[in-house]
Design a protein around this nucleic acid. Structure first.
Lengths: 239, 239
DNA sequence: ACGCGCCTGTTACGCACCGTTACACGGCGT
DNA sequence: ACGCCGTGTAACGGTGCGTAACAGGCGCGT
């Protein structure tokens, strides 16, 4: 309870300078033009919830979160996992309230970008304006790629694809792509991949039996990236 | 071949004034600030293709199109159907080339919004800037809603959900929501819903046998909207 | 520290849904 | 007329779901 607030992502293999790793939006630049405040969210807590007033965008500085859609009849769907450099809340631009949940899966540090000032500031700063539009477009492309995988790949290949995607994103942040800790449970992976958690378990076990990966609860090692890539229909270039 | 270029969507039951129906972006306002040209695309032709240079956004004025993702290993996925008022090409903002295909399913009339001038113009026109960001966010929400349906609903309910969504969009444009013509084949519906075309056929037949709809090739009548809505877990309010 | 209980993850097994294959029908263009 | 494409129907089989039982961590308590 009184433990220091220390996002475990930072303890991963190969950390780098924080700001240098922010891929899209530069905090220092943002601070010059709009209100930016830091916010800490503990594992399991909500950053925002469906229906809450929408008044800020969020840039993940450290930690790990998931975003979930939910329906009136109780169906739930994990739509993505967010890590350092990812922008949250963009799906609610143009609305008064949030339309999904954002839940921290790990203690997280978030930059809160006051909104609507964000867009107003962007009006006068072409650089920021372009970055925001690009971030939104990137989000769309990410979703579209997900659709393609979900709709065209069988269960095991979706899991392989998920691991490769996660590895690539971690690598971009300076972490090891071959050896990492899953921050989410099997149920969250299953929801994200439109499967059931048992199916995810089976797929992981099978990939391990094939010698492509090594899994021990949430610890994952990618042993044969080329094999995984060819499995999901990507060129076998070594990452 | 020499038939007049007449988008058949305009011939549907209850047309309205064109500009009044454009939900997001107003052509007259756009013309004041950037280069806008009209473009016609015949059924079956591409508006743009994956890999082509990206230099414009497209606003559908009349007709009907689909957008498809595709992979190096030949998988294809319909990611959406676009009609009047929908903005195309936004997924490529920030890139030099298009990342998906846009194919006309019906003779279509498109406003071509020269890009990058679009964003530059938006910089000086808060109204346009807000509209573009809102259009991108709307696109994300649309994709997320699709993810939720695909991942949580069985085949028949996906088909019902698809029909209801299509009906709602047509209604917003002033067309009949109860009686319309599908502009796409079963295979395109199947791809969009992550099913096979036989399954779509079965689902449509079954919904007809239940008395909820009436189907004759591409002609669809929604006979019991309340039943369809309750089927997919939505409140039964009559549309 | 130790054990207890709960939660997460793993595996097995039967079954249902949906994909696969095959074929028939009808419209349309050549 | 012919062939082709899009569509509908049916039988069959496989992938992945549902239930269940079990194993192993982890937090919690004493």
């Amino acid at each position: 309870m009184d433990t220091a607030f220390a996002p475990s992502m930072i303890e991963a293999p190969h950390p780098r300078n924080d700001l240098a790793a922010l891929p899209e939006l530069d905090i220092e630049q943002l601070q010059r033009h709009m209100l930016v405040t830091q916010r800490k969210v503990r594992a399991g807590q909500y950053l925002y919830r469906n229906g809450q007033p929408f008044h800020a965008l969020y840039l993940v500085h450290a930690g790990f979160l998931k975003t979930c859609e939910l329906t009136v009849d109780g169906r739930e769907q994990v739509t993505g996992f967010r890590m350092r450099g990812d922008l949250l809340g963009v799906e609610s631009i143009g609305l008064a309230v949030h339309t999904c949940d954002a839940v921290a899966l790990d203690d997280s540090v978030i930059w809160e970008l006051a909104y609507p000032p964000v867009l107003n500031a962007c009006l006068h700063v072409p650089e920021l304006q372009a970055r925001l539009a690009a971030a939104l477009a990137e989000e769309i492309r990410r979703d579209r790629a997900w659709m393609l995988s979900i709709a065209t790949l069988p269960a095991e290949q979706r899991v392989a694809s998920f691991l490769l995607d996660l590895a690539a994103r971690l690598a971009r942040l300076g972490f090891s792509a071959r050896h990492f800790i899953l921050r989410m449970g099997r149920a969250d992976i299953a929801s994200f991949l439109a499967l059931k958690h048992e199916t995810v378990s089976r797929a992981l076990s099978h990939l391990e039996r094939l010698g492509h990966i090594s899994v021990q609860r949430r610890e994952v090692k990618l042993l044969d990236v080329a094999a995984l890539r060819s499995l999901v229909g990507l060129p076998c270039t070594v990452q």
